[in-house]
Simulated scan of single mutants.
Amino acid sequence: MRVARVALELSQEDLAKRAGVGRQTVIRIEAGGKGVAFDVVDKVRGALEKAGVVFLPSTAEHGPGIALRRKKIEN
């Protein structure tokens, strides 16, 4: 989740506000998520996805990753 946050150029505080959680929660998730309820992690993930992150699953060739959705170009 740290990579996703940094890719969006968000501070921990910005992400916490978007997700409706405390900054310490974001810090704990980024440090491994021990002791953080699944629904809270899901809120943070949802905020990142809403901001444009796409989480990519692991495959036989690579581990999990992220991508950023392309912004729509209007004519």
Rank of each mutant, 00 (worst) to 15 (best):
R2C: 05
A4G: 07
A4P: 08
R5L: 03
V6F: 04
V6L: 11
L8S: 01
E9V: 06
E9C: 06
L10M: 11
S11H: 06
E13W: 00
L15V: 08
L15G: 08
A16P: 00
A16H: 03
K17I: 10
K17L: 12
K17Y: 08
K17Q: 11
K17H: 09
R18I: 02
A19M: 10
G20H: 03
V21K: 08
V21R: 07
G22L: 09
R23H: 08
Q24A: 13
Q24D: 13
Q24P: 03
T25E: 08
T25H: 04
T25A: 07
V26K: 04
R28N: 14
R28K: 15
R28H: 12
R28S: 14
I29V: 13
K34P: 02
K34G: 09
V36S: 09
A37Q: 15
A37H: 12
F38P: 12
F38E: 15
D39G: 11
D39H: 14
V41T: 13
D42T: 12
K43M: 11
V44L: 10
V44W: 06
R45H: 10
R45L: 09
G46F: 05
A47H: 08
L48M: 09
E49W: 08
K50C: 03
K50T: 14
F55E: 08
L56H: 00
P57T: 11
P57Y: 06
A60N: 10
E61G: 11
H62P: 00
G63I: 00
P64M: 08
P64N: 09
G65F: 00
G65T: 00
G65N: 10
G65C: 03
I66S: 00
L68C: 04
L68R: 01
L68K: 03
L68F: 03
R69F: 01
K71S: 14
I73S: 14
I73M: 12
I73Y: 09
E74V: 15
E74G: 13
E74I: 15
E74W: 14
